[in-house]
Design a protein around this nucleic acid. Sequence first.
DNA 1: ATCGATTAATCACCAATGCTTATGAATGTG
DNA 2: CACATTCATAAGCATTGGTGATTAATCGAT
Lengths: 312, 312
Amino acid sequence: MLMNVTLRQLQAFRQVAEQASFSKAAERIGLSQPALSATIRKLEETLGVRVFDRTTRQVLLTPEGEELLRLATRMVDEFEAVAGDLQDYLARRRGRVVVAALPTAAAVILPPMIARYRADNPGIDIRMHDGLHGAILEQVRSGAADFGITVEPQDTDEFRFERLLADRMVLVCRPDHPLAGRTAVTWAEMAEHPTVAMSRTTSVRQSMETACAQAGVTIHPLYEASHLATIGGLVGAGTGVAALPSLSLPLLRFAGLASVPLESPVMERGIGIVRRIGRSASVAARGLLAMLALHREPSEADGQGSDGVEVH
Amino acid sequence: MLMNVTLRQLQAFRQVAEQASFSKAAERIGLSQPALSATIRKLEETLGVRVFDRTTRQVLLTPEGEELLRLATRMVDEFEAVAGDLQDYLARRRGRVVVAALPTAAAVILPPMIARYRADNPGIDIRMHDGLHGAILEQVRSGAADFGITVEPQDTDEFRFERLLADRMVLVCRPDHPLAGRTAVTWAEMAEHPTVAMSRTTSVRQSMETACAQAGVTIHPLYEASHLATIGGLVGAGTGVAALPSLSLPLLRFAGLASVPLESPVMERGIGIVRRIGRSASVAARGLLAMLALHREPSEADGQGSDGVEVH
DNA sequence: ATCGATTAATCACCAATGCTTATGAATGTG
DNA sequence: CACATTCATAAGCATTGGTGATTAATCGAT
């Protein structure tokens, strides 16, 4: 009964009360005067009370009108505040994005984008979870992360993948190393040199193992490390060479190392955005996704597709 | 833009979010499922965001949906509280009535009605202002009083009068007074006896003066008092007789006095309800007005009219 | 008094909204 | 693989909400 009262009506009512005139209020609201009359009449019908005593010369509130005005004011103010919040949220002035990403992606790709996104949308809280592939998928699945940045997942029923760039395994060595000048090196060749590697739990190490298996060679690392920087230090000290994804090279720049693409087999994995199918992205997330799409590097056999990230 | 969001929509949204199902929510709301779908679609259109990710098997909130749910909940709760207040007000469970009345009316007519009204509507605050005719009109004019109880005002443009009962001037004396047994007494006869009277500012006194002037006699009261009880005491003590409105007799019952109608001229004034024209009565006031109308005493030349108070 | 200006109510008419029933498409379940 | 469930869509209809034109009332100024 009373629940049928509309915000429109309350606003109209408030305006009429404030202007003490139907015509003026109608003009201010952007409505014809008859329409406003009808609106108020309707309001009065649903309330069962006259809210204005009106003649052609004056419009003034009845006692119930007074009461209603207090309530309507409270109501409309409340709504406007709430609407403002939502407005902010939708306009990306408030909100949060959670990105789950592989450590290298988290370190190399995201920081500049995040910095820029942050500058554009100061109200948005960006959170980054770096983790391994499995953990990333889990977070995306559960919704704990808005999207992930990792390699392509197998499960195409649950995830949609959008490739951003290629990450190829390369050999890393000192600039004075015999292999340093080469345009390419095979895994078999690499196996003949002392090697350092990431620990077995990492996907980088697993890529290396896969490649070696395919090449029919075995590598026994002299050292294993779980941090990339350690690998960099070891290689820089001449302890050995390492097979690393090209994406991680920027992180090793400090060590002044050389890199050479590895082949036979070429180990290349596509790094991209992983999203949960059937779950739409938040407005805030969309902004970051769009930004990522712009920075996507044109890769082989990808030129014909659409240019932007599917924003659903 | 955002202002077009409807309470219906918010409520529907809330219900769907709660039930995690369109069908269940539709049933609970009392709406067909397609109607509910349309409602949500409309909401999404005006917001420009999808609020539910829905398949035929599951319905769950998007990030914006989560946000909206918080706001919608707040909004709807607020409204329900406010609507409850108004509901109370309209149902006369809250409110206030201010009555301005002549002292005698305030003392004689109103108390029983107020007591009963109070019992029926415990939430309503009743306030009574007793004052003289002019003050009553002023309060009714300004809106300080919802209505007045007094004699008929001259100004028929501004006030509407509704007669409740007749108030006739009677002579009040001790039961053993020579005039006590009479069926009527003229003002001239009264003038031959020692008299006490109300002070000059009261309308009772003015009525007396008017009557004496018409009768061509003059009365010099032995005593003047501004309180009715004082007059009662004086008359009871045998100091003199007094001319008082019949309405005040109940107040003098304590003194055990006799009364005799005064004539030549008959001074009778109609006491009734005075309302401001063009100003509608509050719901709370209407209740009291209706009650007054019921207790109205059938007076001469009034039998053919409508029985209830015009409630407008 | 009468005229003109102002203002709210009313009317006739049209567009848009909201609802219902019937139907279709998708997706788990036995 | 049929079945049941569930949301979306379609078609038809009543209601609502809107506009412009007109009317009635009232105030102020001739």
